[in-house]
Each structure stands twice: as C-alpha cells, then as structure tokens.
Amino acid sequence: MSIRWRKRAGIALALLAGAAIPYVAPPVYVNLASEILIFGLLAMSIDLLLGYTGLVPLGHAAIFGVAAYVVAYLNARMGLSHTVAIPAGILGALIVSGVFGLLAVRTAGLYFMLITLAEGMLVWGLAYRWTSVTGSENGIGGITRPEFLILPWQFYYAVLVLFAVCAWMLHRIAHSPFGLTLRGIRDNEARMPMLGYNVTLHKFLAFLISGGFAGIAGAAYALYNRFVSPATVEFARSAEGVLMVILGGSGTLIGALLGSGLILLTRNVISLYTDRWLIVMGTLFVLVILFMPDGLLRGLERGVHRLRVAVSHLRFLGSLLRPIRSPTTAKEPAGEVPVPTRHETP
C-alpha cells in the first residue's frame, strides 16, 4: 500500500515538474523538452522489445521515420489535413513494422539484430535514393502544425499528455499477462512453447505494438521538427534509441525517458563545441557497455542497496563495538555470577 502510494506520488510529482517546465525555462529548452519526450517515447517502444521480450531492434528509427515521412508527404506535399496525415502516418508505421516483424520474429538474438539492422538501412536507402518521393538529402520541409499547437509551450503540453498516455499504456501492456509472457520468452524462449505459448505470435505482436508506438513518436516528431530527411531514419538514430534504453536501464520503461534526456542534453551541450557527435556517442556506447551494462536506474538502485547494506553493516559493527567501549557493563555480569558466592549463600 505505502509503496503504491509512494509511486503515485512520484508520478504526480514528475508530471507537475513536467508541467512546470514552460513556466521556468526559455522556449529553446521547452522545445528540447518536447524532443526529449518524443525520443523518450521512441526509446520506450524499443524497451518493450529490448527489455521485456529480449529482442534488440537495430532499425526502430526507420519505423519512426516512416511515420514521419508519411505525415510529411501527406501534409506538406499533398496539403492534406492533420486529421488524415497523422493517422495515416501511424498506420504506415504499423504496416511497415508488420512486414518487418514477419521477417524478423522468425529469428532471435544476433540474427534478429542483423535483420532489423538491414531493414532499417533499407528504409534509409529508400529515403536517400527515392528522390521523387522523399526529396533525397533535401528532405521534405514545410510541415504545418495545427493552429493550437504552434507555440513551443502549446506543442510541449500536447507532447507531454501524449507521452503520459502512451507511457501508461505501455506500462499496462508490460505488466499484463501478455507482458509476462513476453518476459517468459526473454528469460527462456525454449520453455515457453512447451507451456503452450505461441512464441512467434507473441514476438510478432510485441513488434507490432512497439512499432505502433514508434510510429506515434514519429508522427509527433514530424510536427515538432517540421522537416524530415534521411538523417531522421539513419542507423545512428536507431542505435541512439537503443543506447537511451540501456543507459537509462532496460526493462524499466521509464529509464528510456531518463536515457533520452541524458543523451539529448549531452548532444545539445556537445554541439556547442564540436560537430563530432558520433565520436562522443560511440564513446558513450563503449563506456556504458563496459562499465554500466544494466543502466543508470539499476545502477542507482544497486548503489542505494549497497548504501543500505553498508549502513546495516556499520550498525552491526557498532553493536559489536559497544561492549568494548563500555567494559564495566560488559564485565559486570561475569563478575556477578562467580561460582564461590553461590556456594557461600546456603
């Protein structure tokens, strides 16, 4: 009961803090906060596969990007309204993740990574070379926002609500019987079919759900950035998403937001000094894998746990020390029960 209320209080506090950002931060940072939430949602969709199903998708930016491209094409090139373009974008992401998922979920482990990587690069290749539709390197610009979402704070609140709703849905999915089955697949894929579960179907559905949320994030990104280009779907973005999840802590969902915040803040700071972001990101990758493979949240948890253990050890040591510090109280009982005195009393 108390833990549940503590959690609820934490969520309420986080939402309050999120809602306060436009009041305390300049518009540039409000925009950055929107971006962090959008990529946090993408990273969460990756976490559903990575942390809960044990499949590492290396091409999720492509699914994200398909939604962004569809929104951009329908909105900017064909002049359709948002009520058509946004659902079409998410639908596009679902279709692509359906096709990609069908191919990828037949495999696991390394093969899954390599296949999703190749799928992601395929989308990049299309975005880059199918000039008549995607505009190649020039991308598609001129995406409009609905009238009530034009200012940074307006857009930020919309993204905040979107993020909160999606996070809640993903949380419910991850902690449903379906989510438990996914975790069963993650922990022991060979045993699940023997328990009567259709592993391939579960993996496919997980891929589809994950792709759907990546598509929502992608559609939001198209409106946020008002411009899409091959850089939106490139492999570095997919890898960044995976890094966000691992940095924050996989299998926690909310760790993805933490990772997204850390990575995008770092990128913003680094970009003031150098263009070499990929070197920095690559180094982060190496450092995280070598020194913090289970992420910040778990690392913090472990740190807190160690602190607690240390405190209880100190207490134990203290209790051992006590008799030595006050020798009189320690020796008194020994002195009080000398054998001869008992003999003398009768």
């Binding site: 590492v56 290396l58 390394l110 990574m113 570095a236 890898a239 995976v242 890094l243 691992i246 070499r276 972001w277 990929l278 070197i279 990101m281 690559g282 180094t283 982060l284 990758f285 190496v286 894998i289 070598l290 493979p293």
Partner: peptide, 16 residues
C-alpha cells in the same frame, strides 16, 4: 548483445 553494441560504438567512432 554487449559485443554487438560495443562494435556499434566503435564503428561510430571510427566512421566519424
């Protein structure tokens, strides 16, 4: 998993 991600990081560093 760690091996693959490690080589991704190294690939980014080298390419950049």
């Amino acid at each position: 998993l760690s091996q693959v991600l490690l080589t991704i990081g190294l690939a980014f560093i080298t390419g950049d």
